[in-house]
Design a binder for these strands. Structure first.
Length: 458
RNA sequence: GGCGCCGUGGCGGAGUGGCUACGCAGCGGCCUGCAAAGCCGUCUACACCGGUUCGAUUCCGGUCGGCGCCUCCA
């Protein structure tokens, strides 16, 4: 397709829009941080999964060949703690929660990422990356632990725009006084096995397990190489997680891990007082993804995600998702009345605007505006082909809403026929009664110029 | 306190130096036996105070308010 606008994405590191530079073969590597599997995921966790799955679909549609990697962190302090509380082995908990995560995200119907590496299956890569850091003097081992020397990286802080001089690393700060860490800023790459920890691997500096940040550097590099196009995740990961990832790879490989750092905004919950706050396990205001899907359906939930720009916070509330459902129902209604086939040139500008909006920092809200315009004008035409509509909805994984619903049964059609007879006889009371009977069976009657039809009640 | 982001019509939520975003909801009308859907119209906003400008919701400065990160967190 000629004259396609360049794809630009907001880069957290530079704070600017940057053009996506695909490989010569059109390849685009995308790494998005996935869940730590210690309990089930909530809708907030689903946002990056959705956004980056959509981004992949969009790049596909643009003729590029994206590779999406979403990792699973399956060894971690939180997992140990949760497993201990339940009195089960940590591996058992991690495996169970990973299975839940797969099932819950499967229910979004967006397919799977190309790779979903487990931290525990990347131990070799993690160890060699740590070894490279030690070799270069950017890390040091102490009694079985290994720490990253933050001050070895003169660009540390450049991603999150923080001044090294006024940072504290938080994690393991209590170790500073013991002299284990050379500097309070240093963070763990490898943690020696402690009592009660039931998973550990042998490493040159002792038996233990990897720190959180190093896992991602290793998994990303292993599957996408260094210097891939997009590294993504929630904005709450910018510091310290992504800052540390960037520093590790920079110091070990002498190159940047990713070209563009792309962060989605938080999903917020409206509290009783009317204010909004981030949905987080630690805040205790979560709605689990499977519960949200059960309540609204995955179609409505997906369109809801598309109504806001990915970088902005989005307020999850019953009413706003319901509004998305109503919007989608009307798009679907029009779409179902159209047949497959090329869409007319007259509607082309709207389709182009849809894709142009996505090319411009993946602005799904603006894309929806173009989709709305397409639908509005399509209604005025005489049964235009719906290929464009399918192409647009496919980006969001919503082309399924165009499929015909369940067919009315014979009993339903009998009621409809009876109603038509009542109408012909001008027996309005009986006609209304029959319409009520059909409503109870899940059908809404629509009286059109070509006679009455049944559509599923929404 | 530091860093980043944001304050848009009843609600959600884009965007722009001058031209109605869009959606949902409401209201009036057309259509309809009544509805539904659709169509037309309507309510038509950009926190506040300064500044730049012929002109600012859009740029700059300040005030107030909100959110995120700075501790595990998508």
């Amino acid at each position: 397709m000629p004259d396609e606008p360049p794809i630009v994405i907001h880069d957290t590191a530079s704070g600017e829009l940057r053009e996506l530079m695909a490989g010569d073969d059109g390849s685009v590597g995308i790494y998005a941080c996935g869940p730590t599997v210690y309990n089930r995921i909530h809708i907030g966790n689903a946002r990056p999964f959705v956004v980056f799955s959509w981004l992949k679909r969009f790049l596909d549609a643009r003729g590029l060949t994206p590779t999406l990697v979403v990792n699973v962190t399956d060894v971690n302090d939180k997992i140990y703690a949760a497993a201990a509380q339940q009195g089960i082995p940590s591996t058992e908990l991690a495996e169970a929660m990973t299975a839940h995560y797969i099932a819950d995200t499967d229910a979004l119907g967006l397919g799977r990422p190309d790779h979903e590496p487990l931290a525990t299956e990347t131990i070799d890569g993690i160890i060699s990356l740590i070894a490279a850091l030690i070799e270069r003097g950017a890390a040091y081992a102490v009694d079985g632990d290994v720490y990253f020397r933050v001050r070895a990286d003169d660009r540390y802080g450049s991603l999150s725009h923080r001044d090294v001089e006024q940072m504290s690393q938080g994690e393991d700060d209590d170790l500073v006084g013991t002299g284990r860490k050379d500097d309070p800023l240093d963070f763990a790459l490898w943690k020696a096995q402690k009592d009660g920890e039931d998973t550990a691997w042998d490493a040159p500096w002792g038996r233990g397990r990897p720190g959180w940040h190093i896992e991602c550097s290793a998994m990303a590099e292993e599957l996408l190489g260094v210097g891939f196009q997009i590294h993504g995740g929630g904005s709450d990961l910018v510091f310290p997680h992504h800052e540390n990832e960037a520093a590790q790879t920079r110091c070990a490989r002498g190159a940047e891990l990713a070209q563009i750092w792309m962060h989605n905004g938080m999903l917020e919950m409206r509290s009783a007082g009317g204010a909004s706050e981030k949905m987080a396990k630690s805040v205790g205001n979560v709605t689990l993804l499977p519960d949200a899907i059960a309540e609204h359906g995955r179609d409505a939930l997906l369109l809801f995600f598309a109504t806001g720009h990915y970088r902005q916070p989005l307020v999850y509330a019953r009413e706003t998702v319901a509004a998305a459902a109503a919007r989608l129902a009307r798009i679907a209604e029009l779409g179902r009345s159209l047949a497959d086939g090329p869409s007319p040139e007259a509607l082309r500008p709207h389709r182009d605007a849809f894709f142009a909006a996505l090319a411009s920092d993946f602005n799904t809200a603006q894309a929806l505006e173009a989709l709305a315009a397409w639908v509005r004008e399509a209604r005025a035409l005489d049964g235009p082909g719906r290929d464009d509509l399918v192409a647009m909805l496919s980006i969001f994984g919503l082309e399924n809403v165009l499929e015909a619903g369940a067919e009315p049964e014979a009993a339903d059609l009998e009621l409809l026929t009876a109603r038509e007879a009542a109408r012909a006889a001008k027996d309005w009371a009986e006609a209304d009664r029959l319409r009520g009977a059909l409503a109870e069976r899940g059908w809404q009657v629509r009286d059109g110029a070509d006679g009455a039809e049944l559509v599923p009640l929404r």
